[in-house]
Each structure stands twice: as structure tokens, then as C-alpha cells.
């Protein structure tokens, strides 16, 4: 069982990213969510950056 707080932060972030990506009909929402879950520190800023770039 993973109990580390960062796992839960990443998990919540991944769920939010998945929902947001689906709502915005972004490409590959599941891939974004997985990337955020597994490499939060890089994937979350990257998602936010592309989100802003695509929807200024």
C-alpha cells in the first residue's frame, strides 16, 4: 500500500487533469493523467503549459 503523501497529491492531480482534459476534449487525457501520476513534477507543469497554449 502506498502511503506517501506525494502519491496522494499526484493521484488527486491526475484525476483533476483527466477530468479537465476530457472536458476540454484535449488529446490523450488518460496519457496526461498517467504522466501526472508518475512524474508529477514535470508532467503537471507541462500539462498546464500546453493547456494555456491551446486555450489562451
Amino acid at each position: 500500500m502506498i502511503t506517501h503523501p506525494f502519491f496522494w497529491i499526484a493521484l488527486v492531480s491526475a484525476v483533476l487533469v483527466h477530468r479537465d482534459a476530457k472536458r476540454r476534449s484535449a488529446a490523450r487525457p488518460l496519457a496526461w493523467a498517467l504522466a501526472v501520476l508518475l512524474f508529477w513534477i514535470v508532467a503537471l507543469p507541462a500539462y498546464l503549459w500546453q493547456r494555456r497554449a491551446n486555450h489562451p
Binding site: 502506498i2 506517501h4 506525494f6 502519491f7 499526484a10 508518475l38 512524474f39 508529477w40 513534477i41 514535470v42
Partner: peptide, 21 residues
């Protein structure tokens, strides 16, 4: 590893996380 470390402090999840369990 399972978490990104910066000067010993964990700052993020990392890709080895699923394998580490």
C-alpha cells in the same frame, strides 16, 4: 526511483513508483 529527491527531500512521484510496490 519511486519519488524524485532533491537534496534528499522527496518532491514528486517518479516513474519507478508502480514497480517499487
Amino acid at each position: 526511483g519511486p519519488y524524485v529527491h532533491v537534496l534528499g527531500a522527496e518532491v514528486s512521484t517518479a516513474p519507478w513508483l508502480p514497480a517499487s510496490v
